[in-house]
Design a protein around this nucleic acid. Sequence first.
DNA 1: TAGTGGTCTAGACCACCAA
DNA 2: TGGTGGTCTAGACCACTAC
Lengths: 261, 261
Amino acid sequence: MSDLFTPADFEESGAGPLYVQLHRLIAEAIASGRLKPGDSLPPERDMAAMTGLSRVTVRKGVEALVASGQLVQKRGSGTFVAPRVERLEQALSLLTSFTEDMARRGRRVESRWIARGLHAPAPEEVMALGLGAGDRVARLERVRSSDGVPLAIERASLPAALLPDPEAVEASLYAVLEARGSRPVRAVQRISAANLGPRDAELLGVPTGVAGLRIERVSYLPSGQVVEFTRSLYRGDAYDFAVELKLAPQNQDNAAERIAP
Amino acid sequence: MSDLFTPADFEESGAGPLYVQLHRLIAEAIASGRLKPGDSLPPERDMAAMTGLSRVTVRKGVEALVASGQLVQKRGSGTFVAPRVERLEQALSLLTSFTEDMARRGRRVESRWIARGLHAPAPEEVMALGLGAGDRVARLERVRSSDGVPLAIERASLPAALLPDPEAVEASLYAVLEARGSRPVRAVQRISAANLGPRDAELLGVPTGVAGLRIERVSYLPSGQVVEFTRSLYRGDAYDFAVELKLAPQNQDNAAERIAP
DNA sequence: TAGTGGTCTAGACCACCAA
DNA sequence: TGGTGGTCTAGACCACTAC
């Protein structure tokens, strides 16, 4: 490992800014398997000496690899190749709760509550939930983990009429809704990607800037009333969403047209 | 705008590293509307003087906002609040091509070809396409844009038997497949998020590290043969995928079980 | 040409971890 | 206690843009 960055190697490593060259050198070492998960990199000061760069430049070269989750830095300890994270796959075409979904594949689910209570609704919530004047909203915010690994942040808003006592929700929101006879039967989700901000990244235990999957879900009762408006952030490196597509039908009365006319 | 960063403001701006404080200050100014799209920030050297920080620290504070697309930096010109990018929404439950999808909402589509040809398959392609010994693979790599804005990178692999002449593909791959009588009727997609590497970021005209939506699609003929194996990267800030969910049925023979048993 | 962001340096101090 | 990463500085040169 100490022969990773001889000054000679570094000279030949191609064009571009020095920190990009270093980034490429390390990324290739990981991709080729010369650096394996759990391996440690030389200390930053050593890498600087070996390459002839300043420590600031070395850190800049390493930065993107840390941000993308390929390297892990531990203060006081060192820089390591990240362990392989097992990707979980979730089927997108079914309306299930996180708890149910994990249970189905035999995983324990832990929830850490960040906030739980009744509030005056934000304008966004009034819109999404179709609230009237004076209506209150139940908010649930928690970090979902499986086997000790944080996987997602979930921020749910429901009309207080449907969930007057948010404190009653323990593991599964849908279980509580089911008991109250207001389990949703239909939902529309929007999926996009975003870099995690400092707060969200800390909640998920990853560096700021890592790519996350952002999912907005609006769920409906059979009557058409909105049950929940949930914004979730999943770790991009730990989650896959899978969906099956069918050939676009010619008739106009299908789900897609309702979603994106 | 020049009163954004008085030393006084900065003193009160709370705890944490200095660059985080600066980041928060700017982020709040954008969120609150005090900084609007198109507005310019003071030059880095000026911000350093106004806050009492070094320029390196100012750059570090701005960095995350540039990576997440909220700010745009132009060498020789300045730092600006990013224009609002109109988010496009794509329905996930239908099997349509990019070209058809855009046409349906009245948008022009441009494709820039990066590569197009017949090759010996990579192991990954042999697996996904179910190729036999000696089979060749047609590869199509292009950047998809709409109204001049790059939206996605598309890397498609097909059995050469189904597409012996990749050069024949112009705008729509599915149109060519349709003409050859081998248009897919079913597909399975996997969606995740990833930070864009330098190469992909450059193709999409965004900074390295921005969050992108990564989509892997495998499409099938009615016979069950695989038609295409496509890996796409969408700009996370420009694309939403929408999908409608239904209540999970109790029977075991449904799409989700086939996708994620 | 003057001003901007992009890169890079040498050196410093701190917080944290492991022996 | 010694070594690690985390933060920060003052100053330099370059490439590019706008005038």
